[in-house]
Structure formats: C-alpha cells, structure tokens
Simulated scan of single mutants.
Amino acid sequence: MEQRIAVNSWTAWLLATRPKTLISAITPVYIAAAWAFVHGGHRINILPLILCFAFAVVMQIDANFINDYFDFKRGNDNENRLGPKRACAQGWIKPKSMFRAIILTTIIASTIGFPLILFGGYQLILLGLACIAFCFLYTTHLSYWGLGDVLVLVFFGLVPVLGTYYLVSLASSTLFNLDILIAAINCGLIIDLLLIVNNFRDIENDKAAGKKTLVVYIGKKNTLFLYCGIGITVLLLGVFFLIHSNLMACFLPLLFLPFHISTFIEMKTIDKGKELNKILGKTARNIFIYGLLLSIGILLG
C-alpha cells in the first residue's frame, strides 16, 4: 500500500530535497579536498572546506526545488512521467510553498557562500552568481536545448573541484595543476551519468514536450555507448595521475569498473520504463564508489 504523504509535511520536504542526488554535490568537494591535503603537505584550510560542503549541498537542494517547481509549471511532470515522483506534481507541496522555498534556499546558499570571498577574493561573488543563475537557467531553458550535459561538466566538475581546491589548498601554487584539472574533468563526466540515465528513461516524454536533450539528439543506442564509454574514459584519464607518480590514484579507481559495466548491462537489458529508476540509484552508488576510491587513492599515493 502506497504511503500517504501529508501536504507540506516534513516527509514531503525531505522527499523534495531528493537526498540521493546529494552525493553528486559533495563528491567534487571531497575529491578536491583530498588533492589539496596531499599538495599542501598534509595540511588544509578547514573553514572554507566546511563552507564549500554546505554551499554545495544547499545549492543542490535549491536546484532540485527549482526543477520540481518549473517542470510542474510546464506540465512535464504529468501522468506519463516514468521517473521518481515529484513533490509539486504529487500534491505533497503546494506550488506557492515550493516557490518560497526556492527563494529561501537561494538566500541560504548565498549567505553560506559569501564568506568565501575572505579566502578567494571578491571574484567569487561573480562565480556564486553564475552558480545561482545557471541553476535556474538549466531547468527553465538550457536543458531544453541539449546543454544539460555541458552544464554538469562545468558546475559539477570544473567549478566545484577547481574552486574548492583553490579555496582550501595550502600549497604554494594553486592556480593550475594537472592532477586537479583531470580530477575536475573526471568528476563532471562521472556525475553526468546520472543525467544520461534520466534522459534515457524519459526520451519519449521529452520528445513530446519538445525537450531536446542530448539523448534525444543522438538516440538510445548511441546513448548506451556514451554511458559505457564515459566510465571507461574516466579511468583512462586517470593515467595522467602517473605523471606525478601517484600510482594509487590511477589504479585504485579501476575497482569501479565492474560496478559500472554491470550497471551498463542492466540498463541495456531493461531499455525502457520505470524499471530504469533502479539504474539511476545504481549509477549514484557507482559515483560514490568512484569518488571514494579516487580520494583514498589520492591520500595513499
């Protein structure tokens, strides 16, 4: 029997935050922290690290609320939706309450992020504004133009990894380092797998709604190759860690491969329908496994 969720209850709000997605917010931060710890002679700047973690989590929740609200307004979250249930569409949270929550979480994220200028300078204000702006633009416009995957690479890879590293590292030079650049690219690519699964599952609904995702452009067969290929590419890029003789950062993440291949085979077998939501959960698990293995490898190396 399906659980009844009271309107605007704590349970409703918890579900609206989409707790499983938060792994994609914190993974870039702890990978960057691991490199900063190693490069800084086993020292790290703790306060900005805490702020980076908090900012990442609140911004992810903010993005989830925005997605929930605007997809409901567009009518995308209808009876044909195959993905996990959404709060506004299910009536768990009133649209006006969700809109107020979006304003609140945006303010909280800004409040958390503002002190980071003490560690990184006033240019971080522009970066923070970009994060907030693209948080809205993704759901309202850019995801309909096939740019969602690019945004994931930038805002779940390059921005959080390079930004966190710059803010928390006590190394003598933090402006450029090949290790952290490869880690940032890998992080963006591996997290993009979640979006690929989402769009693979929703391809027919997205076509009907006029949403031109990358999956819609390249088709399901090519998307399967892309999903599998991204996981392998991430591991191949890890070879660059050998330049600085970090063997563990290169080889320990290889343990991620069996999980990835198994999930890919299951995704290919299922092909369509609500059962693909299992692949979403397993992909999130795989992201956590990769991030954990890479971080341990960095520290041990």
Rank of each mutant, 00 (worst) to 15 (best):
D206H: 09
G121W: 11
T223Y: 02
S169N: 01
R43A: 11
V154K: 09
L300S: 13
I23E: 01
T164Q: 09
S24F: 00
Y165P: 00
A184H: 11
V29P: 12
T17V: 06
Y227G: 06
R74Q: 13
L175G: 10
S245Y: 10
C250H: 00
L47P: 03
T105A: 03
L127T: 06
D202L: 03
T213S: 14
L292Y: 01
A130C: 10
L47F: 11
K220F: 06
C135V: 02
L153G: 00
Y227K: 11
E266H: 12
L104T: 13
F134C: 10
N76G: 04
G273C: 14
L294W: 00
F70R: 05
I180E: 06
G163Q: 04
F176Q: 03
F155K: 02
Y122L: 12
C131K: 05
A6W: 08
V38C: 00
I46V: 15
S173A: 14
E275C: 07
I125C: 05
G148I: 04
L104S: 03
D271R: 15
T269L: 14
Y30N: 07
A89Y: 02
Y144C: 03
I46P: 07
E266T: 15
F241C: 08
F119V: 03
N8F: 07
C228Y: 13
P258S: 12
F240V: 10
K212N: 15
C228A: 15
G113H: 10
L293P: 02
W35T: 01
Y122G: 02
H42F: 15
R201K: 11
L300I: 13
L15A: 10
A16L: 11
V38R: 02
G120P: 01
K211M: 08
G83Q: 10
I190D: 00
R81F: 08
